[in-house]
Amino acid sequence: MRQALIIARKDLLIEWRARLLLVRVAPFALLVLVLFAVALDSEPLILRAAAGLVWLAMLFSALMLVQRSFDVETDDGAVDVLLTGTVEPAQVYLGKMLAAFVQLLALAITLVSGAVVLYGATVGADQLVLLVTATLCAAWGLSSVGTLYGAVVANMSGRDSLLALLALPVTAPLLIAASRATEAAFGSQTIDAASGWAWTALLVVFAITFSAAGAAAFGTLMESDT
């Protein structure tokens, strides 16, 4: 676990120095929110769709983050050096997942704030716990899937479009569950807090499944080709 933390720290340090999240991904995510509002062009409709739009914007932005996270590793074969050393592949996976999780969490806070400001979504004090829990679980699930599929396409030509094609269908359960839970937290009439918690439970199952799969598969995916 110590190695995973070191890897995570390394990734976050690189991110902190480059500030890609701040200057590119977060503005992109907010831009997506604005574009949704322009496309839908109806305030009640936007408010109803707010939760789903937040998580769609999250998915798109997560792709950018994951891409970046693996470009750092495959440039100059850095990941090969890591793995020929004594670092367990599962530890590398968990470390990268953790770093992605922290960044996605920051992004989620930005987007939820964006929804409150731009779409007029409201979060009651009693629903705050649900919102925070659901967001934590969804960010965890998204970072586990993202890091896993990032490893699948690492080093491939045309990997950006491929990552979207591969990872987005897999995140369908996450998109559904996170949107519904957030919708419940936004105090929608169609979905109550209890089902919000049920959806959060699904998010946990999703995150555990793909974290385990990622830790198991990472070694195979990163094996060098000689």
């Binding site: 369908a172 359960p173 559904i176 699904l202 499944t209």
Partner: peptide
């Protein structure tokens, strides 16, 4: 991974 994914997708869509 697809084998892992499909039951999750199906379950969540049914619930949805």
């Amino acid at each position: 991974l697809a084998v892992l994914e499909i039951p999750l997708v199906h379950f969540s869509v049914v619930l949805w």
